[in-house]
Amino acid sequence: MKKSSEAFKNWLLSGSDPLEEEMIETLSDDAAEEKQAEEASPRAKKERRSLKQYLYDSGLYRPVRILSSVALCVMLIVMLMATVMDMPYFGQADTLVDSEVSEFYVKHTLEHTGATNIITGIILNFRGFDTLGESHVLFIAVCSVIILLKMTPKEEDPFLHVHSDDALDRKLEKDLILSSLSRILFPLILMFGVYIILNGNISPGGGFSGGAVIGAGLILYLSAYGYKRIQRFFTYKTFKTVSCLALLCYTSSKTFHFVTGANDIHVPISLGTPGTIFSGGLLLPLNIFVGLVVACTMYTLYTLFRKGDF
């Protein structure tokens, strides 16, 4: 009785018991024999060849197909090149004169929002609620992934949590080349992400792209150094705190904006001088909040799909 319970426990903890191994061995022997018998008979050989012909198309129409696919590719290349040639030049003044909406944005974004990067001015000021919904969509996606994939901690349920951190770290097999490269690269990547977020209102970039860069940097750190090192500064609690706080701050600042703007109250936040980092009123904090949400979301999705926990 004791032995069988031990075997059961062994099986649960993903070990293998001798009986099972024996069964697998006999099964693979049978499969090999079958394969040999199949190879010996000429009919099976013929069938296999016809299957190969069907799959790889080495028959009559092969040159036609190759020629037609090459022709299709060349046509596509020519079409794309023609489109690129037809595009307006970079920085041309009369690019989109026909469209009233874009003309309004191009002419008035700077005076309304104080952002030299028109795109940030549009997505965080004119369409701020749209971006708010987008960051909430990201948060909801992570929540549903957590509901589906997050495993219970080991103390609560000993049978569900099979892989311990040590086993996973061993499976990772820390690579010397990767870890020594990421020692140089990880700080640079983080710095670049922060630079993109902070410069969102004056140069191309912003919360979404900078947050994606930071999230990718965290993923690189995880794959280079393993779970133990990253748990020093990024755990489930960190994710919860940072994400929820950033979304709350975003919502409250946007509500403030909405109330003051809709009721025509004077906004006390000045727009600052365009072109400096502290300009554009609420754009800089909004960019930071969006960046935090995106970075946390990217890292969390990765680690949940990989391990089911942080």
């Binding site: 690579d175 080349i177 990767l178 490269l181 140089i184 690269l185």
Partner: peptide, 13 residues
């Protein structure tokens, strides 16, 4: 040049 050989190394592993 820094990243591409490392990723190639990992994929080959």
């Amino acid at each position: 040049w820094m990243t591409s050989p490392v990723s190639g190394h990992l994929i080959s592993l």
